[in-house]
Nucleic acid binder design. Structure first.
Length: 389
DNA sequence: TCTGGGGTCCTAGGACCC
DNA sequence: TCTGGGGTCCTAGGACCC
């Protein structure tokens, strides 16, 4: 038995590390994986971080911080396959693996210590296996609860292990800035700082009611638990990919801001087709359709409509978001992004579409299926809705 | 030429029903 | 009966995470 059964394993600079396997000549150079133009950094290696480069930083600022930075394009197919191999390695240690994303998972090793030794030893063994098999490094946090393990893996980075025994939880947590806590982002951090709560210890010693008045009932209770390390220790085993999604969406930032309605409507068709295709591939349909619009000044609004019946039909999604868009009555407003999302997803076979005599919808689901078949055979570039040609 | 794209969850107000 | 409370759905916005 062990009093620190939770491991949080986090790949170091995952996308960058994977990309550098193909380019060993660049390992000592500042390297980021990211988009072009208006994109942001997806991952930066530790050399690049030396220049102040971080994930989510706009590429324009990256080039200013470090003009000779090497930018590599993301290769998601490779990231996904490396991730699958790593997750397989985790499952050789324990069946209780909760994947959080491609590069991060929690492991419950309660049932593995007799076979594999204490958690620290398991962590080191995992790190060396992953390094040998995948050529990338990772860091591991070990603790009694999920959030302490996650904070410990952050402390362990890069390429290390940190174990936080129960007796050391408060001395580990309380000096940290409140912004380190899961669920505390830029806004909440600033809010807490304004209340004079700078460290996790400050939060821990604030009466629950006071905390809840400041940040809301739910987050207040949550933060109190996180500050004392009394969050959950039971994992939800899941693969990370094939779990039922509650919503599916797609959005795109334009290369240039636009006020051209025809262009926007065409983009909405492309996004609707993308979302509809993914829904049909997953066998789900949804009732609530949401349009997202981001203006040139970055203000963002959404408009949604809930339909009487769930749909997965591209044309219905597109017609709905186009109506929502037109109802905004925009004239000269310059847009930088539009998005389409379908929520309230249910398995497609639970939807009983009422056939209305003479309804013009008939034929569209069949058209979608034909598009889906052609896409599977020839790839998405081969099949486009008519007006995208 | 500041600020991606995929998501989740929470809050709050109003409608509507009992 | 002029005053109500609870529950659910819908909409919009916002914060957060990877």
């Amino acid at each position: 038995m062990t009093d620190t059964p939770i491991l949080h394993v986090d790949m170091d600079a995952f996308y960058a590390s994977v990309a550098l396997r193909e380019r060993p000549d660049l390992v000592d150079e500042p390297v980021v994986v990211g988009g072009s133009g208006r994109g942001v950094v997806l991952a930066a290696n530790y050399v690049a971080r030396h220049y102040g480069i971080r994930s989510a930083l706009p590429m324009t600022r990256v080039r200013r911080l470090c003009p000779h930075v090497v930018v590599l394009a993301p290769d998601y197919a490779t990231f996904t396959s490396v991730s699958a191999s790593v997750m397989e390695t985790f499952r050789e240690v324990t069946p209780v693996v909760e994947a959080m994303s491609l590069d991060e998972a929690f492991l419950d090793v309660r049932g593995s210590t007799r076979r594999l030794g204490p958690p620290r030893q398991i962590a080191e063994q995992l790190r060396s296996t992953i390094h040998d098999e995948q050529g990338i490094t990772c860091s591991v946090g070990v603790a009694a609860s999920v959030s302490v393990a996650k904070l410990a893996s952050r402390r362990a980075k890069p390429d290390g292990v940190v174990v936080v025994p129960p007796a050391e939880v408060t001395s580990f947590l309380h000096p940290l800035d409140v912004g380190e806590l899961y669920g505390v982002g830029e806004k909440t951090q600033a809010l807490l700082h304004r209340f004079g709560l700078l460290t996790v210890g400050d939060v821990a010693h604030t009466p629950l009611r006071t905390l809840q008045r400041a940040v809301g009932a739910h987050l207040g209770r949550e933060l109190h638990h996180l500050a004392w390390g009394t969050d959950r220790s039971e994992l939800v085993p899941r693969a990370g990919d094939h779990e039922p999604e509650r919503s599916m969406g797609a959005d795109e930032t334009f290369a240039r801001d636009t006020d051209d309605r025809e262009f926007v409507v065409r983009e909405l068709l492309r996004l609707s087709a993308k979302v509809g295709g993914r829904m049909r591939a997953a066998g789900v349909a949804g009732r609530t359709i949401t349009l997202k619009v981001r203006f040139a000044d970055f203000t963002t609004i959404t408009r949604s409509r809930t339909m009487p019946e769930a749909t997965d039909v591209t044309v219905e999604i597109h017609r709905t978001v186009t109506r929502l868009y037109d109802a905004l009555g925009l004239q000269r407003a310059r847009l930088r992004l539009v998005g389409v999302r379908v929520e309230g997803l249910v398995p497609r076979d639970t939807v009983h579409h009422q056939l209305v005599l003479g309804e013009p919808e008939r034929g569209w689901p069949e058209a979608d299926r034909a598009v889906d078949r052609a896409t599977r055979r020839f790839g998405s570039a081969a099949v486009r809705p008519g007006s995208l040609m």
